[in-house]
Design a protein around this nucleic acid. Structure first.
Lengths: 268, 268
DNA sequence: TTCAAGTTGTACGATATACGTACGCTATTT
DNA sequence: AAATAGCGTACGTATATCGTACAACTTGAA
């Protein structure tokens, strides 16, 4: 997408190639890539080795990376980049007390996410016991089509946006319940749109089910979703729908009101 | 520090100026700078306006920023930069269950931070009720000298490292109890070193007190600190020290063992 | 041992990249 | 109407950035 010829921003004088490449290097580090050599980074990013080296050394110089006998790792300072977003955006801290309230009542985890391309990104999370194999935190990304929050967010896209999403989509079968074709997904989204909530049962991971509702701004546009996720062996689909869903809806109602009260023009 | 003449990394061919500048722009966004114009960013960073513009447009193109009638804001995608660190470092997710356990027992918030220059950076946090005026989250920075975790981390620096820290220090008086001179700080650190825990009473903010203990790796080196913070009107200093401190020490002991068990060479 | 394949650093010349100055435009304020 | 402050952009320059190429080193296999 960013490499095709139609992409002419890069040909304007406004494109900063080095910044793009530097951010690519930061993102090369992940769950599977904890510590990387210069050559590793070069391979992952497609940058030449000297370029990868220069970027890594610069990140080290700036305190965002550390090198120890040839292996580079990111430092906690990298977190402050993400925190630049959180602290410049008080929207989610408004939601926190209501999320805590929900967690106290139900004993289960509660999260808020927004759509970013084909992924949802967690922007707020209050977790109780750990139930997933991977650790979820603010900043985590998950594929939208396999999550309840993703369904809620996708269901509220415009037809054009949904079309774009569908065209950029690759299905991966996480479990045997994972949605893996467009027809199935479109049907699910239709249901979500009608009932105004979404539920996913072990489509992302065995033993994990969740339920989600949209968060709307003052003008009614959906810009985020909030969910409750629980262990499938402990919480039935019925409990999730009949007991937790009303609480979730109630919490979101309060959050919307609190956000409207702060008059945050960003989401009007 | 990074602008003086002795700083010769910048004169090597390994320094990538544009990346440095781009990261500066991201960090220009903060609590007080939620939405910035091109000129704002230019002033804050000291970059020329066209340069600031090129970087902002590149960030927008890459999806890390959004522009709406002249005002730029960061997007949630920025979080994924910080998450690149978290997901490439499983150290803190090991600590989470023990932190949750502590929070359940005490009902108060629990955090882990590491030292980054003169600041502590939060790398893990389980919060209960909100007690501070600013919202703390993973990625938050606070000045080390005004926090209990900061004291614990500073107390365990080598004399040379502490010397460097002291030389780069500017005291700010947050409350009338804030430590504001080197002698006082050094004395406090001496006490912390001897008792192996630190406590801060309303030095960062009125009505907030906390207590912290060091987290050591297998070879005994302190690389992080864990604390419990509470509302001063609700939890006395004595409760904090006599009831919560032992629980905190117990939790840290378990965390150290769990980390050692994973054989994480990064912290040996 | 020797060879091959992997890593690393770095020199260097080419040029694409990024830069800041300068200018013209618009909007708001005084 | 003048002044201020924001904006975009053209442009020529300079330099920052690039990739190729080469040398040194390590490791493991033959």
């Amino acid at each position: 997408m960013s490499t095709n010829n139609l992409d002419n921003f890069k040909n304007t004088g406004d494109y900063n190639q080095s910044l793009d490449r530097g951010l690519q290097v930061i993102q090369a580090f992940s769950q599977n890539n904890k510590a990387l050599t210069i050559s590793d980074v070069s391979k992952i990013t497609g940058l030449s080795r000297p370029t990868a080296r220069r970027i890594l050394l610069t990140l080290e110089y700036l305190g965002f990376a550390e090198a120890s006998n040839g292996l580079f790792t990111l430092t906690a300072r990298t977190l402050s980049l993400g925190y630049a977003y959180l602290s410049s955006n008080n929207t989610w801290s408004i939601a926190h007390p209501f999320m805590r309230d929900f967690v106290e009542k139900t004993g289960e985890s509660c999260s808020i996410s927004i759509l970013d391309g084909t992924n949802i990104i967690y922007v707020a999370r209050i977790s109780t016991k750990r139930i997933m194999s991977i650790n979820l935190d603010v900043g985590s990304k998950l594929p939208a089509y396999a999550t309840s929050m993703g369904h809620v967010l996708l269901a509220n896209l415009s037809p054009e946006e949904l079309e774009t999403y569908m065209n950029n989509l690759d299905f991966e079968k996480f479990t045997d319940k994972t949605i893996h074709n467009k027809q199935e997904l479109l049907q699910t989204l239709q249901d979500v749109r009608e009932q105004n909530w979404g539920g996913v049962d072990q489509q992302l991971e065995e033993g994990l089910r969740s339920i989600a509702v949209p968060i709307r701004n003052a003008s009614g546009k959906v810009f985020a979703a909030m969910n409750c996720s629980a262990h499938a062996g402990r919480i039935s689909k019925e409990v999730l729908r009949d007991e937790f869903l009303p609480l979730l809806q109630e919490s979101v109602e309060k959050i919307s009101q609190a956000m409207a009260a702060t008059n945050n023009s960003q989401y009007v």
